[in-house]
Design a binder for these strands. Structure first.
Lengths: 176, 176
DNA sequence: TATTGTTATACTCTATAACTATA
DNA sequence: TATAGTTATAGAGTATAACAATA
């Protein structure tokens, strides 16, 4: 595999702002190489969002380790599993990508033997997507790993904070 | 311009969870077409993160409208402005991308007349990146637009909630 | 010998436009 | 006429490997 999506042109390091918890901690290691001035970036939600996104993506890859699958592919597998008979176009508009883009997405999942393009009973133009037995087994195997990954990413947040984070993120999503 | 990065294979719609604020609102419009079952996705931080990311990215594009620039390019311009004389390699490691990738990033910004590859005074192997006058003017023009964009994205969060969101995101970034 | 920028190569994600088969 | 899947084409973003110039 070539690349391995890492970060993006957004800035990586971050100066420690906010959170005065555990005041009396003896200034433990905080050796993330800052050095660079970040200007207004640390105040932007998009900037923090992007950094968190990168961290989550990379940890996901490790968490599902033996399997080579991206968070996006996992999402598609879940949607197919939860909505049997979905067509490519429906799936595409659900995840917000063009149907021409969805072709290659399904191609990859199909060539790995996880997804089947079954004929749609009603409409001969479209497929009824479904998981193969291997795809079903894969998802079963992935779910506990993904849950463990989730616990890792949220390990410094208590239950309430996790719920708050998701709620705040959802409100940002709806704000645009 | 071709594509216009929109979303990704992660799932778009979302069922309304949490937040019982304003109980007596008469069930206003909430017509985001759900229909699809999302399984465990809405419980995953990565899923909400991705949706928020997409919303922010798209709104950013609108907010800087006359200019065609991505959040990532904006971030790079800010870093160059705040750290004059930065080399491509330093910039690359700051934003977490390979120096070979940074070449094309700077190529684009340079071809648009915003960034200059000035000779480094100390090291003849590297460049001292700086903004051109046009690049400086661009950034000056962008900053208020980006701040307005930020207000749009955070319009349903009060000041405290915004700070909490950024803090929680930073903690997630550090968790991996 | 190590580092900086570069090029060659490759792969994913994304889009638009046009085509085929079907509705 | 409209829709589902497809292909052709294009561009951004990402990586690794190798090379030249310089340290």
């Amino acid at each position: 595999m070539p690349y391995r999506a890492s970060s993006l042109t957004e800035g990586q390091t971050l100066p420690d702002t906010a959170r005065e918890t555990t005041l009396k901690r003896p200034r433990a290691r905080d050796n993330r190489q800052p050095k660079l001035a970040l200007g207004l970036l640390p105040d932007l939600i998009g900037y923090s969002l992007r950094k968190a996104q990168i961290a989550v993506f990379q940890n996901f890859q490790n968490a599902v380790a033996p399997h080579d699958i991206t968070p996006g592919q996992f999402g598609v597998l879940i949607l197919i599993r939860e909505n049997v008979g979905l067509s490519q176009s429906e799936l595409g508009s659900a995840v917000g990508i063009d149907r021409s883009t969805m072709v290659a997405v399904i191609d990859r999942l199909e060539s790995r033997g996880w997804v089947v393009r079954a004929p749609s009973p009603n409409d001969r133009r479209s497929y009824a997507l479904e998981l193969s037995p291997a795809g079903t087994a894969l998802v079963e195997d992935l779910i506990p790993r993904v849950r463990a990954h989730e616990r890792t990413m949220a390990k410094d947040l208590n239950k309430q904070e996790q719920a708050i984070l998701i709620d705040l993120l959802n409100r940002v999503s709806r704000a645009s």
